[in-house]
C-alpha cells in the first residue's frame, strides 16, 4: 500500500493532551474529534489539513495519557500516516489497533520539512522525501503487529482469534 502526502511537522514530546484535550473526550466520533485535533498547539492544523497529509513528529510522539482519541482524532482529520523519530508505547499500540499507519524513522523525521511531500510504501516500510529524493527504511514491525495491521485493526484481529464471523 502506497501513500503520498504533504508534511505537517511537529517537535519532540508531542503529548496526547495537546493532540486532543480531555475536554473533548466525551465523544468518540472521529469527525468531532478531528475538528479539535492539535488545537492547543497549532490552530491552523484542523482547518487546513488535507486528506492524505502526513504528520511528522520528533522523539516520544504521543506521550502522556492512554487516550485512544489521540490517534482517532489524527486519523479522523484525514492524516494517512505518522512518521516520527520515536513513539510513546501506548500511542504506538493505539494507532496500530485503530488502523492508523505509523512508522518510526529518526532520519526521515528529522530531514522532513513543513510542506515537503513524502511517499510511503507500507509493505516495504520505506519513506521517500520527494524534495530531496532520499529514501529511508523504517523500523520493521514485529509479526504480531503486522498481523493486526493485516486484519484491519485489533477488533477484527480479536474476532479472528475468537473465531467470530460477522454476518449481515
Amino acid at each position: 500500500m502506497k501513500l503520498e502526502g504533504k508534511v505537517w511537522k511537529y517537535g519532540d514530546n508531542i503529548d496526547t493532551d495537546v493532540i486532543i484535550p480531555a475536554r473533548y473526550l466525551n465523544t468518540t466520533d472521529p469527525v468531532t474529534l478531528a475538528a479539535h485535533c492539535m488545537e492547543d498547539a497549532d490552530q491552523s492544523f484542523a482547518q487546513n489539513v488535507q486528506p492524505g497529509d502526513i504528520m511528522v513528529g520528533g522523539r516520544n510522539f504521543g506521550c502522556g495519557s492512554s487516550r485512544e482519541h489521540a490517534p482517532i482524532s489524527i486519523k479522523g482529520a484525514g492524516v494517512s500516516c505518522i512518521v516520527a523519530e520515536s513513539f510513546a508505547r501506548i500511542f504506538f499500540r493505539n494507532a496500530v489497533n485503530i488502523g492508523l499507519p505509523i512508522l518510526e524513522s529518526p532520519d526521515a523525521a528529522r530531514d522532513a520539512q513543513p510542506g515537503d511531500t513524502l511517499s510511503v510504501d507500507l509493505v516495504g516500510g520505506t519513506i521517500t522525501n520527494q524534495r530531496t529524493g532520499q529514501t529511508y527504511q523504517a523500523s520493521p514491525y514485529p509479526p504480531v503487529v503486522l498481523g493486526i495491521i493485516n486484519a484491519g485493526g485489533l477488533v477484527p484481529y480479536t474476532r479472528e482469534i475468537l473465531g467470530i464471523e460477522i454476518t449481515g
Partner: peptide, 20 residues
C-alpha cells in the same frame, strides 16, 4: 502497564494480550 481502550476490549474478550 497501560493499554488503550481497544486493547482493554480485547482483554475482556480473550483474557490475554500480546506484550513485548
Amino acid at each position: 502497564a497501560g493499554v488503550g481502550r481497544t486493547e482493554m476490549a480485547a482483554l475482556w474478550a480473550t483474557g490475554e494480550l500480546w506484550l513485548r
